[in-house]
Design a protein around this nucleic acid. Structure first.
Lengths: 198, 198
DNA sequence: CAGCTGACAGATATTGAAATCTGTCAGCTG
DNA sequence: CAGCTGACAGATTTCAATATCTGTCAGCTG
């Protein structure tokens, strides 16, 4: 068990465990090493600094969501409108589920997100990239229009219009009873804005 | 000067000065009293607790913006679409100006907003109320449509779609070069979604 | 000899004693 | 006697001494 070779992935998994257990302020590199049964010097062989380790954990967590959404983007059997709606609903529900299932861990990740804004920016760029693909599909289909805006700018506008339903700063509001209706209302407004006129 | 009667308004103005000078964590009731040349017991005659005092300062600050926007809501010479756009642009520019003009004081208010979420909720209700009036005007004009949503829900959706451009959590992004274009893109999308089809 | 250990220096966090602040109220004052 | 003062108790914050942690590296080990 502790005889397996020490890989970056094993360290990341152990770090997540330690973060869940102690929280972001108390989790130390020594704790991670102890959880793996090695000395902390060995951890530094794989991650140059504690900050780099925390950043890698953050990136791993964000990429799990990006992977799930990828499937919706690539479901070419559905219309662009359908994919756009499902993509946003899935993003909201995935984030809300994470926040609800383990609030302790989610709070930990909120701290990590704040200290790794560059990683978050890359994640946002990934998401906007996926939205760009969906919008492009809708334009090709002839069901979407964007007026004078270019496709990436339109994708960014769709992303911006729904921040309240995916930015963790608003996580506290995701338990309110009207929140799903409010997301639906924003999506109706946005989709109505994208649809070509009859 | 110090002989004037001690009013709630004078205390609020002095509190804002002290907050600007010392910041939210160092500003004490004793400091406020010293600035007014009275004992701190006198301040407690007007505000039951320090929290109530800070809340009143917060409310006063938020109400200044609501007052400015009121004028746009009531400008019945303009179309609803024009008013909706100007209202959102004004809200954005007013907040950005406050953040840029005195970053120290703005940071102080960010702290106050976090500790007075109930006051913030009331402020948001006020703003959504103003948006409701503008949407109602557009419906009466026959230029707006809302599908199946009721007017307050539609107003809330418009508000939600533009959070990135008025919620202080995003203040750091308001200096980015593309931010105005991004607001314009979201407003184009939203207004397109509201407009009745030709 | 690749990968790991553990002692070490400097940086950061914890802790508890001392200082300050909040909120009250009996009494002063104009 | 309405409005203010300032001494006070308990709560909170500050500060400096102490402990712990980060990141390095010479040397150990399988």
């Amino acid at each position: 068990m502790a005889t397996e070779t020490l890989t970056a992935e094993r360290i990341l998994a152990a770090t997540e465990d330690v973060l869940r257990l102690y929280g972001p302020s108390k989790a130390t590199v020594v704790d991670v090493a102890r959880a793996l049964g090695v000395s902390h010097g060995s951890v530094y062989r794989h991650f140059r600094t504690k900050a780099a380790l925390r950043e890698a954990v953050t990136k791993r967590w964000l990429d799990r969501t990006t992977g799930e959404l990828r499937q919706i983007v690539e479901d070419s059997s559905a219309t662009a409108e359908d994919r756009l709606r499902r993509w946003n609903v899935h993003l909201f529900e995935a984030k809300r589920a994470k926040a609800g299932a383990d609030p302790q861990l989610f709070a930990t990740y909120e701290v990590l997100l704040r200290e790794n804004s560059e990683t978050v920016d890359e994640h946002i760029a990934d998401l906007v990239g996926q939205l760009t693909e969906i919008l492009q599909a809708g334009l090709s289909e002839g069901t979407f229009t964007l007026g004078s805006a270019d496709v990436p700018a339109g994708a960014r506008a769709v992303f911006d219009a729904t921040v309240r339903f995916h930015d963790p700063v608003y996580a506290a509001q995701w338990v309110l009873p009207d929140i799903e209706r409010e997301l639906a209302a924003v999506l109706d407004l946005v989709l109505n804005g994208l649809r070509v006129r009859a």
